[in-house]
Design a protein around this nucleic acid. Sequence first.
RNA 1: GGAGGGGUGGCAGAGCGGUCAAAUGCAACGGACUGUAAAUCCGUCGACUUUCGUCUACGAUGGUUCGAAUCCAUCCCCCUCCA
Length: 416
Amino acid sequence: MSEFKSEFLNIMLERGFYNQCTNIEGFDNYLYECEKSGRPAVGYLGSDPTGDSLHVGHIVPLMMLRWFQKCGHKPIALVGGATARIGDPSGKDKLRPFLDEATLAHNIEGLKKSFSKFLRFGDNGNDALMVDNWDWFKNVNYLEFLRDIGTCYSVNRMLTMDSVKTRLEREQPMSFLEFNYMLLQGYDFCVLMQKYGCRAQIAGSDQWGNITSGTELGRRKYDTELFGFTSPIITDASGKKMGKSEGNAVWINEEKLSSYNYYQYFRNIGDTEVGKCLRIYTDLPMNEVIRLESLKDQEINEAKKILAFEATKICRGETEAKAAQETAIKTFEQGSAGGELPSVVVASDCGILDAFVNIGFCASKGEARRLIKQGGLKLNDKTVSDENYHLSAADFTDGQAKIALGKKKFGIIKVA
RNA sequence: GGAGGGGUGGCAGAGCGGUCAAAUGCAACGGACUGUAAAUCCGUCGACUUUCGUCUACGAUGGUUCGAAUCCAUCCCCCUCCA
């Protein structure tokens, strides 16, 4: 199935990354020419440092860039130090609170870390490049910017952009500050084009408006065709965005989420999502993906294990992935307790309620009590029925005891 | 600047002097059933306390009242219309 001339676009298509492109034939030709001549195409992905780590929802464009690099092209990871100071109105109902300089700096570091898990950075050939748009925006003069860039935008057109239109339709306030966001992102694209010969922007489909802002600016002001390429929004079976587990985001950086929990997120994916996830979150070759996704009923669990392992490997490294997998096997299949489980140190006569609160499984003793009434808490595989129970030496083996909340949350408590 | 409407739990959204820790829906969580899946059914869903109960909470601060999410005052924020 060679729909396209370029390797990159064929991969995007067969793995389900292709949603929309500003000019698919043009982009294909550009990539093909580059692939043929051995000169890397240059494309970028931008992300604003509004948090200190990316999460699973961001992986889709990251993987696109990863493939982009694998195809011999040069990815640029842009950290939006400047745009984060404005706030992207896309998909938002409210102005975001401003971040102070310290958290901004902290977030930028976290973001760089997230990027570096998926891309190979360096100074040679098609090594990825990291840039911060603060570098070129910090000295921009307002009047000059308005005259140079502002003249290329029509407010009439801007008002029709989704990010603006929906906000107005819902009668939610939109500040002039946010209204300017698309100009900044458009300008970014052109700066990268001029500095690094960047011709493509790759992102999730929610960025479409901001991307076309850049391609239009490129055409009007610099007479250069730029390409925008977006992925579909990946949703789970119930149509919600991917990336929440127990109400919390599935973070890419390990300080925010253990590799074991990261692994478990993918291990617990719905049957209907397996094929899609294998395509998007792993590097596995397509014939393997097709084989795995055809598994049915209980066998599909094998596919889920491979998915979880491969996805964890990319993000956390092979060692971590193996450890996570081993822990999962020990815990779920052999009934013992794997080493990667969350653990907490407690006093040897600690109350059972405190133990569950301390390890973070329960937010309060009241919650722990309720769960005991519902039969949801276990100590060494036995359902806890007495909320006043205090641990004793008999509960520990080698100074450890295994506790569980529900069927999936396991932890280890250790004697002080 | 003028006139009107509004700010309630993770979200949406009732309540408009006591019976309100606050209806309902969604989300979340536990149990049953299973395959660490989905669907379904049952249950839970502010904190401390075994129960009684106590405390904190309906934008903020004061006040009226035996008693306020509910009334009054001031302030902050948002929306709509007019200038």
